[in-house]
Design a protein around this nucleic acid. Structure first.
Length: 773
DNA sequence: GCTCAGGGCATTTTT
DNA sequence: TGCCCTGAGC
């Protein structure tokens, strides 16, 4: 068997074998952090420690899975399998299910995702008659989330003068009441949100010392990955669990703490020493990933931060090439330069597409790179954005499953009670909801007792419709108790007509929706079959307990293997690529100082850490690219390069960072049109817009019914037949068509873009007319 | 209850 | 630009 200790350098080895007592492993970028964690666990197992007494917490399922697989290769599958290894959320969800009696919940509780939480908050805002211009659901939800992450209960929130003053200052003094109501409703629905999994675990351990004791005794060893990203709630749980044996090992890198906006506290890693004065510190400083140039350049950036744990990250690899600075005039040009560089270096250096990543700050920036890569026939994959589990069709079907598992789940019920259409509209639903609130029960609770007690006073027709729905659900619930997850899931998908609905939609979007549902069913089948093989329970209930905590990263497809990756710098953490483009490095998109008064330095430092994370993803080549002018929300912005480029030591750049400060005069051509378009013809006024190079005519859309565009053909209505004056001339790239538009000067042409309306019927296609010169 | 046009808004998000 | 929400009108 292979000797894992041989596979380590001196510092790594120390960190692996000194297993007793508290340890802090400071793991610089690319220093073999995962290796140390996995071998440390393997080492424990080799010494006869029972796997079930080891708790290892990660932030992503992927990290947990990879680590488990690697441990299995060292010590064998049957040992690895009994480890308590998983994400914070999944481990605590499991504990909360096991201890549900002490929490007041049932073991089948639902986990609300961010959308469910926001919808519930929105409902409450409306009911409380707060001004929804001021009370934004997203803002309120994030205040609630902040409170939970800091273990502030609704009551503590109400009594906290500092918080209340802050809320008053942002003109939302009612958040406290909303939070209180929100918690009550979640409980009534038998639901917890993501933050609850941490909050309720804390409450559970604090209020039931005997239960805490039980877990303290169970876990002889506690290990935590990415410790710099833990929030207060996670910190408290870790501390409690490790209090008995004190064998706690946390691994992290303060230089890579980039999630403060989600409640992560970099202080946790700074203060670890105070919590465990007798700790051992291990510093992993040798970087095995990147060239010396990249490591040194990264150091020169992060060195500007005041608050950090001292370390000297170094590389013994070759010096490598300098970082390339790419300056473009427009965002289009930037996309072109990136795509160009990829196709050239790919051939010259025999790279694969998967050796490249384009990183940016915001998801919206992906579009321009998508376009330019597509033009060059470079395969790419966009990460982030709408995840598989957030897709409408997937969420709809999952909502049926949720309701079957937990009929109290109001958010799920509201989502599907009228999908597919059953004639149960908003009015009926709101009556049901009010009745439920009045009685302190769930909507399902009202529905099932309508026979004896028709308080809302529904008429016969409505009662029949609701009855049919509840009959269907009862039937599903019965099947769920008898059949496995796949059998149940498939029956539900078929009997509700959800599957057929999409099958009948032959548009490309309809097809992809149908395929998504098939994919979901395949995943359930896989779960069912592997559960059966391994003797795990595999009912729909068991499946739902898992699926709520899955993300897009958890179902990567093989056909995405050899593609250029497009993602935010945040998402790239933990990954590595031979070539990394850090794109869109304009001051206003990669902000360094645009935040408010509070925490200006902290936020600048965090942006710098983000930049550091992005640079250290690269093994061989780093490109810093930016455009000097860019459209942002339709308006032209003049930009300067991010100040972070200036901070890179010039010795590592292939050209000095350009110091351009709005010094050029844009060439502006103006076009003021007279017409916009709709299905009945040309109407209204074109909004005149100034731009250089490319002119945007107007945001007015041509909405075409029953038509779509695929390949080079219009299916259904051709815009030229519908909108007078619009003629299709020839195809431009991918989505667009170049058009001649009546009334527009002959040197200007329009491009039509199609996109889905995303509404219920999926029939509308948008065509955007855009003038290009 | 559905459709459509118009208005308003806009980081990052491992769970 | 793009997307989501809302209210008018059918």
């Amino acid at each position: 068997m292979f000797d894992y200790l041989e596979d380590l350098n001196a510092a790594q080895k120390e960190a692996v074998i000194r297993t007793e007592g508290p340890s802090l492993v400071i793991a610089g970028a690319g220093s073999g952090k995962t290796r140390v964690l996995t071998y440390r666990i393997a080492h424990l197992l080799k010494q006869g420690i029972r796997p079930s007494s080891i708790l290892a917490l990660t932030f992503t399922n992927k990290a947990a899975r990879e680590m488990k697989d690697r441990i299995a290769t060292v010590v064998g599958e049957n040992l690895a399998r009994y480890l308590w290894m998983g994400t914070f959320h999944s481990i605590f969800a499991r504990i909360l299910r096991a201890e549900h009696e002490a929490t007041g919940y049932l073991s089948n509780y639902t986990i609300y995702d961010a959308t469910d939480s926001k919808n519930l908050v929105k409902t409450i805002i409306k009911e409380f008659k707060f001004d929804d211009k001021i009370y934004k659901p997203g803002v309120v939800a994030s205040r609630i989330s902040m409170a939970k992450n800091n273990l502030i209960t609704p009551r503590a929130y109400a009594e906290n003068t500092e918080i209340r003053t802050y809320d008053r200052n942002i003109r939302m003094p009612g958040i406290s009441d909303i939070y209180n109501e929100y918690s009550k409703r979640c409980f009534l629905s038998g639901a917890m949100d993501f933050d609850d999994l941490l909050l309720k675990t804390n409450i559970l351990f604090n209020s039931h010392p005997e239960i805490l004791k039980n877990y303290q005794n169970r876990f002889d060893y506690v290990l935590v990955d990415e410790y710099q990203d833990t929030n207060y709630a996670q910190y408290r749980i870790i501390k409690m669990l490790a209090a008995e044996h004190n064998n706690i090992c946390v691994v992290g890198d303060d230089a890579q703490s980039i999630y403060s906006f989600r409640g992560a506290r970099i202080e946790n890693i700074f203060n670890f020493r105070n919590d465990y004065p007798e700790l051992k510190i291990f510093k992993l400083e040798q970087n095995y990933r990147s060239t010396r140039t990249i490591v040194n350049a990264a150091n020169s950036i992060i060195g500007k931060n005041k608050r950090q744990i001292s370390k000297k990250v170094f590389s013994e690899k070759e010096e490598g090439t300098r970082i390339k600075v790419m300056q473009a005039l427009t965002d289009n040009e930037e996309g072109f330069l990136v795509a160009n560089e990829i196709s050239e270096t790919l051939l010259r250096n025999h790279y694969k597409y998967s050796d490249y990543a384009v990183l940016y700050r915001t998801n919206a920036q992906s579009r321009i790179f998508e376009e330019s890569l597509r033009k060059r026939n470079i395969p790419y994959k966009i990460y982030g954005g709408l995840s598989f589990y957030q897709r409408k069709e997937v969420k709809d079907l999952l909502s049926y499953f949720r309701l079957v598992v937990n009929p109290s789940d109001n958010e799920a019920l509201k989502r599907i009670i009228n999908y597919p259409a059953r004639g149960i509209g908003a009015t009926t639903l709101s009556k049901l909801e009010q009745a439920a609130l009045g009685k302190g029960t769930s909507i399902w609770g009202i529905i099932t007792t309508l026979g004896e007690n028709n308080t809302p006073g529904f008429n016969k027709g409505t009662l029949a419709k609701i009855g049919a729905f509840s009959g269907l659900m009862k039937e599903f619930r019965k099947i769920a108790t008898e059949a496995d997850a796949f059998e149940t899931g498939k029956t539900i998908a078929e009997k509700t007509g959800v599957l057929k609905d999409l099958y009948n939609d032959k548009s490309p979007e309809g097809l992809s929706r149908y395929q998504n549902l098939q994919e979901l069913l395949n995943a359930i089948q896989e779960f069912t079959v592997s559960g059966e093989e391994e003797g795990r329970p595999n009912s729909l209930t068991d499946y739902m307990a898992e699926v709520s905590l899955l993300t897009d990263m958890d179902n990567e497809k093989p056909e995405d293997r050899n593609k250029v990756s497009l993602m935010t710098a945040h998402m790239a953490k933990g990954l590595e690529f031979k070539n990394v483009f850090i794109a869109g490095l304009e001051e206003n998109l990669f902000p360094s100082n645009q935040s408010g008064e509070k925490g200006k330095i902290e936020e600048t430092e965090e942006e710098r850490r983000l930049f550091y994370v992005a640079v250290t993803r690269a093994m061989e080549n780093v490109y810093l690219s930016f455009a000097l002018q860019r459209y942002k929300w339709g308006k032209l912005d003049f930009c300067t390069p991010s100040r972070f480029i200036d901070e890179v030591d010039e010795a590592y750049l292939d050209m000095p960072a350009p110091k351009i400060k709005n010094s050029f005069e844009p060439e502006i051509r103006q076009f003021a049109g007279e017409a916009s378009f709709n299905r009945s013809g040309i109407k209204g006024k074109l909004r005149p817009m100034a731009a250089s190079g490319q002119n945007i005519l107007n945001r007015k859309l041509v909405r075409l019914k029953e038509s779509s565009y695929s390949g080079s053909e219009f299916k259904g209505d051709d815009p030229s037949k519908i909108v007078p004056g619009v003629t299709v001339e020839h195809q431009r790239f991918g989505m667009g068509k170049v058009l001649n538009v009546e009334g527009v000067p002959p040197n200007l042409k329009a491009t039509v873009f199609f996109q889905n309306a995303g509404q219920k019927q999926l029939l509308l296609k948008f065509a955007r007319l855009r003038i290009i010169s």
